[in-house]
Computed example of a mutant assay.
Amino acid sequence: MSTSRAVSPPRPFSSPEHEAYVTLQRLATRLRDETEALLKTGGLSVTQFNVLRILRGSGREGLTCGEIGGRLINKDPDVTRLLDRLEKLGLVERARSEHDRRVVLTHLSPEGRALLGRFDAPLAELHRRQFAHLPPERLGALLGLLYEAAAPPTAEEGSPG
Rank of each mutant, 00 (worst) to 15 (best):
T23A: 14
R113V: 02
R32I: 00
L115Q: 06
L55V: 01
V103P: 11
S58I: 00
P122Y: 06
T154G: 15
P152F: 12
P136K: 06
L31F: 15
L31G: 09
L145K: 02
A95Y: 09
S97R: 09
L31R: 15
L123H: 11
P77V: 01
Q25W: 09
F131C: 02
R53H: 10
A37D: 11
L27A: 13
A121P: 00
R85Q: 12
D100E: 11
H127F: 15
T47N: 15
R5W: 08
L72S: 03
L123A: 07
L83Y: 06
P10G: 07
I68P: 05
R128E: 14
D84A: 07
P152E: 13
E137T: 08
I73S: 13
S14I: 08
R94G: 12
R138A: 15
E156R: 14
A6K: 03
T23K: 07
R128H: 13
Q25F: 09
E125W: 06
K88W: 12
M1G: 15
K88Y: 14
P12K: 06
G42P: 00
R138Y: 10
A150H: 12
E156F: 12
L27H: 08
A114P: 00
P110T: 13
E156C: 02
L145C: 03
L91F: 14
G70L: 03
S45T: 15
A37Q: 14
E61M: 09
V104P: 05
F13Y: 15
L123S: 08
G70Y: 06
V79E: 04
G70Q: 04
R71S: 07
L105A: 04
A114G: 02
D33K: 01
L105D: 04
V22H: 05
S109N: 04
A114L: 07
V79C: 08
P153Y: 06
L91T: 01
T23I: 01
H127V: 05
K75F: 15
S109I: 05
P135G: 10
R30E: 14
